[in-house]
């Protein structure tokens, strides 16, 4: 067997193994994305409420960090969907 052929076969084995490793089930992916989205929003609102309590400026920080949390949630959703396309 020539060296070229062997290299080709090795490359193919590598790509197949890589695709197998990243072949996640749809269920776990769905859970991951949905919980990431919710967790970011919860974290944002907790930080906002904490800062409001500290500075006693009731709704201001809560609203700012709620919006930031929502942006973060959708940003992480965007990132995981982008990774999905690259597979």
């Amino acid at each position: 067997m020539s060296d070229k052929c062997r290299k080709k076969i090795n490359k193919k084995i590598k790509t197949i193994k890589a695709s197998q490793r990243e072949n996640k089930s749809g269920y776990s992916l769905g859970i991951k994305i949905s919980i990431d989205l919710v967790a970011a929003i919860i974290t944002g609102s907790i930080i906002g409420l904490g800062l409001d309590k500290f500075f006693s400026t009731k709704p201001i920080f809560f609203l700012i960090f709620l919006v930031l949390g929502i942006i973060t949630g959708f940003y992480s959703l965007y990132k995981s969907v982008k990774n999905l396309n690259q597979m």
Partner: peptide, 25 residues
């Protein structure tokens, strides 16, 4: 200015997403 708070919130949301995933399931 926008990206740093986003990264910080997504870093801080790690324990919440990790725990909620197991608990909710």
């Amino acid at each position: 200015i926008l990206l740093v708070p986003i990264e910080i919130i997504s870093y801080l949301s790690r324990p919440i997403s990790l725990s909620v995933r197991l608990f909710a399931n």
